[in-house]
Design a protein around this nucleic acid. Sequence first.
DNA 1: AATTCGCCCTGTCGGC
DNA 2: TGCCGACAGGGCGAAT
Length: 308
Amino acid sequence: MYIPARMPELPEVETIARALRPGIEGAKIDRVEFHLPRLVEGEPTDLVTYLRGRRMQKLIRRGKYLIFELDRGAFIVHLGMTGQITYSPASYAENADFRRTVTGLQKAVGVHPVDKHTHLVLHLAGGARLLYRDPRTFGKLIPVPSGRWDENPRIAKLGKEPLEGSLSVLAADFPASSSRAIKAVLLDQAFLAGVGNIYADEALFAAGIHPATSTDSLKPDQVTCLLQEVRSALKRGIKNQGTTFSDYRKPDGGKGGNQERLLAYGRGGEPCRRCGSLLKKTVIAQRGTVFCPACQKPPAKSRPVNTR
DNA sequence: AATTCGCCCTGTCGGC
DNA sequence: TGCCGACAGGGCGAAT
């Protein structure tokens, strides 16, 4: 069964970066197929010309972004909601039936299908391919001719990397006087780069903090605890998603274990694994939010739950 | 100035 | 069976 990676957040993107590096760092792009210009942000919009002949020198992850440093310029990729990047080794490249018998062959070789959602194909020297697939097309493909990817507005506004530095360094950026719901702050990429809906819910659950809690009402030790749980959730995610990713390359194996390890996200209506209460699902900061009404008590001063 | 809202997009799912 | 609306949501820019 083919299980697409959903909602790539820091752990998923990190996993992808780690898996791609051995195959692509140093690889030259011989030929480019590209079919969906609106995925491109900035100039030049002609990715075929921009990428053809380039050599990929280094792959960096920053927040949820992948950054390909090229021999000339750089190339930033954001996977949006449903973006997938797959490395297809040279040994798979010359299968004439690949396009037509997508499902069967995909099972056989363990790469994702080349179909109408595959918008970018990089043919690498030696026959390997790098495929970008994105059904909902929320992803972004961003050429940076100058190579100064850190000056790109999207990257420049990102906050700190949650897994780097000490907790107190991270806490220094915490918007302690903000009246926003704490979940909105966790999702704010200008505070921490890479935390998304899944890991925000997981961290809040682990810290026992209600997602609607007004940020300025949190005590310093709660903040520290929460940041610790953010890190822990992300690290656990990298561990688990790594497992899922290898299943993804070999889909014959069973389901990834990540789904079953989540304590909050996606478990609305199911019993809390800590206390047995039924988890609640609501909308906070425009996002589906799951929490335990018993373990994550709303404090007296909480923001009204926005029910869209 | 800070915060919230609307929008982009398409596969999936529940209801009738 | 098939149609249809609701839903999923990251991040930007407009509105409040």
